[in-house]
Amino acid sequence: IRCIGVSNRDFVEGMSGGTWVDVVLEHGGCVTVMAQDKPTVDIELVTTTVSNMAEVRSYCYEASISDMASDSRCPTQGEAYLDKQSDTQYVCKRTLVDRGWGNGCGLFGKGSLVTCAKFTCSKKMTGKSIQPENLEYRIMLSVHGSQHSGMIVNDTGYETDENRAKVEVTPNSPRAEATLGGFGSLGLDCEPRTGLDFSDLYYLTMNNKHWLVHKEWFHDIPLPWHAGADTGTPHWNNKEALVEFKDAHAKRQTVVVLGSQEGAVHTALAGALEAEMDGAKGKLFSGHLKCRLKMDKLRLKGVSYSLCTAAFTFTKVPAETLHGTVTVEVQYAGTDGPCKIPVQMAVDMQTLTPVGRLITANPVITESTENSKMMLELDPPFGDSYIVIGVGDKKITHHWHRSGSTIGKAFEATVRGAKRMAVLGDTAWDFGSVGGVFNSLGKGIHQIFGAAFKSLFGGMSWFSQILIGTLLVWLGLNTKNGSISLTCLALGGVMIFLSTAVSA
């Protein structure tokens, strides 16, 4: 259960009878995928790494000078000259100064003066180019299975845990398959586009800190620079940016070097996208990844198990997540596992009318040892309800109150669905055939309105939902006002479609 501690969480529900669903994975976010007769899966884009970055340009932001020398000439005696002028490691300046009897010249006039100092770069920052084909995306998957609280967001041991898996995709191999043991396998067909235009970005490294910066900004930095990788004795261009020549006297000129420019660069980098280094690879934390999940090989585990009949206890007080759902960790005293956990939410304890829904599909106890633990997640209705676990006299209950409203949740879900469709863009549509167009249209309606429909009408039977949709269509056909007619027709059509397409 990876997503319960992530604030940016998206719930995606598969269409009834569908074998695939489109998701948008982004750094700092987590996606929970639910479908009829399929286990619930949490998917998170953990890291995006980039390798084989080529150094484009380096800037010196802290330097020192040494070996200063000057040469001067009297008027009419030609130009002052130093051998160091031809050495690229030196920074030199030529000027004219007033000369006369007082400073060793027989004539009054302008004399030539040249001053040089050896330039040494102490600290530099480097910009590297990123090729999209060198990106690698690491995705962690977790099935809502027989897990306890100690396994949440624990990325170790996934090789031997059938509840978890790690997959890596690249532009050259965008397809992967996550093996989930008894739950089958989940196929991923990803489109490795981060949403960032790397043709316009460089990877900047300064003092063990890293950013993504725009090329134009990078090339306009007014500091000494050299092109390409460091060859040991780089040729620094624009050395004068960190060196200041003071007022010249008759035979000498003082040279000083400016202080470190790291603070000024940090100020200019305010708002830039931060990154990290992992050995020789860069780690990015921006952008998104679009994936199509193929769920035809994914299956529920323990459908044929019998119900657990022994007593359950709450190991922890049920807690609310950031998303309005409830996490419950229970301990089973029996030894008759594997068995299914009898769990439901009810409005009252007399009729036990089921409300809400299970995020953890078909929760089971897989071990036959005593005191096995299991964590599950529920989506309670707004208002008061009861969490009921167990059967008969051994069942345990917990009162729950959820604040908020169904309308607010439906609106929030619609906005999130619209954002998801905007990110998917043209990849969500198939114009290759008439059937493809209608299929894409259905998927689009489901992406945007599916979660809201589930919130508003999830407790009704599909037949009642179709009746309401048919009534809206009838009202649309018999209303003389054009805008009201079109609105009723659209709402009725969407409702009829979703009542037959969205899983219960």
Rank of each mutant, 00 (worst) to 15 (best):
I1R: 00
V6N: 02
V6R: 00
S7Y: 15
S7A: 14
T19L: 01
V33F: 05
V33R: 01
A35C: 12
D37M: 14
K38M: 13
L45G: 04
V46K: 10
T49W: 02
V56E: 12
V56P: 00
Y61I: 10
M68C: 08
S70I: 10
S72I: 06
C74G: 07
P75G: 04
A80T: 08
L82R: 00
Q89A: 15
V91W: 06
K93H: 11
T95E: 09
G102T: 02
G104M: 11
G106S: 00
G109A: 06
S112D: 10
V114D: 06
K118N: 14
S122N: 08
M125H: 07
T126W: 08
S129T: 09
Q131R: 09
V143L: 14
G145A: 10
H148K: 04
V153S: 12
N154P: 04
E159D: 15
D161C: 00
E162C: 09
E162R: 04
E168Y: 15
V169N: 07
N172P: 00
E177T: 04
A178T: 13
T179E: 08
L180Q: 08
G187W: 06
L188W: 09
L188N: 07
P192H: 01
G195P: 01
D197A: 04
F198N: 05
S199C: 02
N207P: 02
H210E: 06
W211R: 10
F218L: 12
L223W: 12
W225F: 14
A229W: 05
D230C: 00
H235W: 06
W236G: 02
E240I: 07
E240F: 02
L242S: 09
E244H: 06
K246A: 01
A248L: 01
K251I: 01
V256W: 14
V256D: 01
V256N: 00
L258H: 09
G259D: 08
E262A: 10
G263M: 13
G263E: 12
H266W: 13
T267N: 15
A268Y: 10
A268T: 13
A270I: 12
E274Q: 13
M277R: 06
D278Y: 00
A280Y: 14
A280T: 14
K281Y: 00
K281T: 10
K283S: 12
S286P: 11
G287Y: 00
H288W: 09
L298S: 00
L300I: 12
K301V: 08
Y305L: 00
S306V: 14
A310N: 05
F312K: 09
F314Q: 02
T315P: 01
K316A: 13
K316N: 01
V317A: 11
V317C: 01
T321D: 08
Q331F: 09
A333C: 10
G337K: 12
P338M: 11
P342M: 11
V347H: 04
M349I: 11
Q350T: 04
T351Y: 14
T351F: 06
L352V: 11
G356R: 10
L358K: 05
V364M: 14
S368V: 12
T369S: 12
K373Q: 00
K373M: 15
D379W: 04
P380V: 03
F382C: 10
Y386A: 06
Y386G: 00
V391L: 14
K394G: 03
K394Q: 04
T397E: 09
H399A: 00
H401L: 06
R402Q: 05
S403D: 12
A413C: 03
V415T: 06
G417Q: 11
G417P: 04
A418E: 06
A418F: 07
K419M: 09
V423R: 00
D426E: 13
F431G: 01
G436N: 10
F438A: 07
L441P: 13
G444R: 00
G458R: 08
S461M: 11
G469I: 09
G469L: 00
G469V: 12
V473G: 02
V473M: 15
L475T: 09
G476R: 00
G476D: 10
N478Q: 15
L486I: 15
T487G: 14
G493N: 02
V494F: 13
M495G: 04
S499Q: 11
V502Q: 12
V502H: 11
S503R: 01
